[in-house]
Write a protein that binds this DNA or RNA. Structure first.
Lengths: 329, 329
DNA sequence: CGCACACCTGAGAGCGCTACCACCACAAAC
DNA sequence: GTTTGTGGTGGTAGCGCTCTCAGGTGTGCG
């Protein structure tokens, strides 16, 4: 940490200060090839003294490596980026990427516009892509040049490995809990129907209901609280004897509870409500929300790590979801 | 979008395809200097045909520009990064940075360890820093090389411009609402006391209480729901006649409401509770939370834009906070 | 002694791009 | 005629780094 020069130190500066060539300095600092103990010490001391920080940009250029990881969220419009779920994903990814000198960029990937993905594939500064809210057409549009550098959070495909919570397992756990609590007329407020990974919990719901000889009552939601409230009331209007609502997300569930309360119904006495995600506020809502865990940060961390490592990854990595029984159901 | 070559097109490819020199192609695509209409057309057509995407890395290297924006969150330990507030900040920043080819990295900046900031200043790949949860010592440690590329979210200093919500104004609005509702024995659950920007609402609280001849009742929190619950009970134990709690964050307020309910107290009948932030779940909690807005995304967007633009910025930019009166107070 | 095989080092090419500079053609002004 | 633009163009240096390659020096072995 020498005198504060205007210009940050370069590898050349370090090499000169250590009395070796740039190649040797690079070898020492890069930890590859041979270097005598003496050279090693001198280079390291010089680097330390000058406050040398390798220029990631130059390294990336020569190595042909990328320098940013793009979180691409598909959806019909850019409001998909406003979701707290996306916030957590991006934040966790950014945390993983920081030590590698990689930055995270957040982009909206319009549904049915494969040009965006193609551009990402032709962009050499992109070291990887995290596809969020993927659908099959999006996965089919992944250019060959991107293979191995792209993973999906949610639905996967043979070409694109996926990381996700075990949607079916979580739905299963919640619905069994509802059933064990004596609920029989369970309506489900879904996520957006075009979102293939969200459909897995719908499928699980339908399967379980049919197997138990119970009625299937589906109302479409979009993971938001506002829509959740409207959807819950819609369900009650269509099927007044509904005694439980299974919401595809905690936000939806919280919205449903508020709407039910607004109509004078007691939760869980009149209608039980359960969600999915176990967001921080689920524990402190009134009534405290029964839900299933969704380890978003762990999923994002694993996905980002996979892309950064570049090692082959199993086609599907499902993170278990466990029931959190509280008061609302 | 020609045949999918294994190697993404470079500027050389485009120049060759257009029958001009690399310099001319660069000029056309970069939109600077002279170029004949003919050359312009040919270059643009070639670029389009080859699916050319400029390599940000190479451009950054030659321009001496950075390629990532670091969100540095100070705190005693890395758990500060788990805050939903940080998630929103990072996500909004990443959204702003994406079109510029800049990625966002999230780092923990240990309190009292200026080496981290110094390293950031010596890192040529860093185009800017967003300091979060700043304290005066951290601001004093900002190296000269970083000046003009660093802004603070929260407390500022003469050398580092700041962007923040109008903490005092928000506190003021909430406390006046509490007072207008007849509350007189108002306890405040603060944020972490070392966090200078959070202290501004404490100061506002103290000022207002003193001016109104009301007792000052402070309990320390840390913005989390869990701590908020414990702090609320602590306040009630120390001052049993407390009729309102002003929480420094919505999470704190939600935790307080849950804890109060657990003790058989009714909100707002027995104790009114108000928060600060207006998070999405404030509207759907039971009772719906009275709070003041905190436009986190707008703040982060403005801060990131300021760093990216590199233009001088006023020392303090305060975003107004407005009261959102709901049921809890 | 010759040869192989370590270990160690520096020269230098080149990643893809920008931007400085020299240059050319042509027209207008002196 | 010469000078001075002015629009258009290409050559090329060089950003900071990695890594190949050629060339050392020293040791063990036939």
């Amino acid at each position: 940490m020498e005198t504060p020069t205007a210009r940050p130190a370069t590898l050349d500066d370090v090499a000169r200060a250590a009395g070796v060539s740039r190649a040797t300095a690079s070898r020492v600092l890069g930890g590859y090839g041979f270097a005598s103990v003496d050279a090693r010490d001198r280079v390291r001391a010089a680097a330390d003294r000058l406050g040398y920080v390798p220029n990631i940009t130059a390294r990336a250029l020569v190595r042909g490596a990328g320098v940013r990881l793009v979180v691409a969220v598909s959806g019909t419009d850019a409001t998909v980026l406003d979701d707290p779920y996306v916030d957590r994903l991006v934040s966790a990814a950014a945390r993983v990427c920081a030590p590698h000198g990689v930055g995270v960029a957040l982009e909206w990937l319009p549904l049915g516009a494969p040009a965006g993905l193609r551009r990402l594939g032709d962009d050499r500064s992109v070291c990887g892509v995290l596809l969020v809210n993927t659908t099959a057409p999006v996965l089919d549009a992944v250019p060959a040049g991107l293979r191995g550098r792209v993973v999906s959070i949610g639905t996967g495909s043979p070409a694109v490995p996926s990381f996700d919570v075990d949607n079916a397992g979580g739905a299963d756990a919640v619905l069994r809990h509802l059933h064990a609590g004596g609920r029989r007329r369970i309506a489900m407020v879904t996520g957006p129907r075009w979102l293939s990974c969200a459909e897995r919990s719908v499928t699980a719901y339908e399967g379980l209901m049919r197997a138990a000889g119970l009625p299937v009552r589906l109302v479409t939601g979009d993971f938001t609280a506002a829509r959740g409230g409207r959807a819950a009331l819609e369900a009650l209007d269509r099927w007044p004897d509904t005694d439980a609502i299974y919401a595809a997300s905690d936000a939806t569930a919280l919205g449903a509870i508020a709407a039910l309360r607004g109509r004078g119904l007691r939760v869980p006495h009149d209608v039980a409500v359960a969600g999915f995600d176990d967001i921080p506020y689920a524990a402190v809502s009134s009534p405290a929300l029964t839900t299933a865990t969704h380890p978003v940060a762990r999923i994002a961390t694993a996905a980002a790590t996979a892309v950064l490592d570049g090692r082959p990854v199993p086609p599907v990595t499902a993170f278990p979801s466990t029931l959190v029984a509280r008061e609302s159901a």
